[in-house]
């Protein structure tokens, strides 16, 4: 009976948010008929549940409220529940030119980051899967994944060093290739956003390589052999066997990747703080919200929460769309 229950938990979870909500309602209804059972259970889950309630659940709920209030950290009168101002933050946000500018930057950044990372990581994964020598394949996996485990700040700072207009390796290479006027990658408004894409791809594509690899390794070898018998060449194999069978991984990768819309740290480390780079060319919405909440003026946390919630809602829509189009079961 217990075994059956735990299996159902996994099954419901994999069907997504709707199923979980449904199941919660059903569990509440059936709660009174359940036996108390082994009360040690409550002792065992207590540390995890307390940590979760205090540092995860409460901030999320409180943050949702903040998004509808004029909460300013430095103005005590707006603290607590007094600041509630309905949709005023939202009206302000939709008429705030800086917000729209930052949102466009976030969108452009995501639309550059996602396809590059997707193609690069899929390509790397397919190539690594072709390596028969297990030691070599292991080495390639480790090297591709290494940037992922570096602290995000270090990853960005390594690129600051590479981009350095005078001493950086990138411009040294360009000069050796005969380029006369080497660009100031991070320093000029025209290139700042593009210069931010590259380190972000570098720091993140490795985790997708591993996810794709897990997917590819789990594809049954016999399917490829059948395709080979049918006379499929490498490209056809990839197109008609590998890609369709990787659909669940694509969904997973895209869902985690869509979080890039709220990218904040990349810009803050590359451009040292919440300046958003030269002429605010790399001011993502995440950075703008951070600046509003923690750097500027009264520390308007309410308005910043509104912007974060907006990003979160857009993200939810994207996730929903991904699952609808890829029609996969895994959430």
């Amino acid at each position: 009976m217990a075994q059956l229950n735990t299996q159902r938990v996994d099954e419901v979870r994999s069907r997504g948010a709707g199923a979980v909500f449904n199941q919660i309602a059903r569990e509440i209804v059936g709660l009174r008929s359940q036996a108390w059972g082994n009360r040690w259970g409550y002792v065992f889950i207590a540390p995890a549940v307390i940590l979760y309630l205090v540092f995860q659940a409460w901030p999320i709920l409180r943050g949702l409220f903040m998004a509808f209030s004029d909460y300013r950290w430095l103005v005590k009168a707006t603290h607590g529940l007094v600041g509630f101002n309905g949709l005023a933050n939202w009206v302000e946000m939709f008429t705030d030119p800086t917000f729209w500018k930052s949102f466009t930057i976030s969108l452009r950044f995501s639309l550059m980051f996602l396809p590059i990372t997707l193609i690069l990581s899929l390509f790397a994964a397919v190539m690594i899967s072709k390596v028969r020598n297990s030691v070599a394949a292991g080495a390639f996996r480790v090297i591709a994944y290494m940037p992922v485990i570096l602290p995000i700040s270090i990853s960005m700072l390594l690129w600051v060093k590479l981009y350095d207009p005078q001493l950086g390796y990138l411009n040294t290479l360009l000069q050796n290739l005969g380029v006369q006027n080497v660009p100031n990658w991070l320093g000029s408004p025209g290139s700042a956003l593009y210069a931010m894409v590259l380190p972000t791809v570098w720091a993140r594509f490795g985790s997708w390589v591993l996810l794709f690899l897990i997917g590819i390794y789990s594809i049954n070898r016999e399917i490829y052999e059948a395709a080979l018998v049918d006379g499929a060449n490498g490209w056809q194999q990839f197109w008609s066997v590998t890609l369709p069978l990787l659909k669940p991984i694509f969904a997973l990768v895209l869902v985690t990747g869509s979080g890039i819309l709220s990218a904040t740290e990349e810009s803050m480390v590359l451009f040292q703080g919440t300046t958003g780079g030269p002429a605010e060319a790399a001011l993502t919405t995440g950075v703008y919200a951070y600046r509003v909440a923690f750097i500027h003026g009264d520390m308007r946390m309410g308005y910043a929460a509104t912007m974060s919630l907006f990003l979160g809602l857009v993200n939810m829509l994207i996730t929903f769309a991904i699952f609808k189009t890829l029609r996969t079961e895994r959430a």
Partner: peptide, 14 residues
């Protein structure tokens, strides 16, 4: 499944 809106701001307060 719930978007973490003002997570960081609420955490600061808490």
């Amino acid at each position: 499944f719930i978007p973490r809106a003002g997570g960081l701001m609420a955490l600061y307060e808490e």
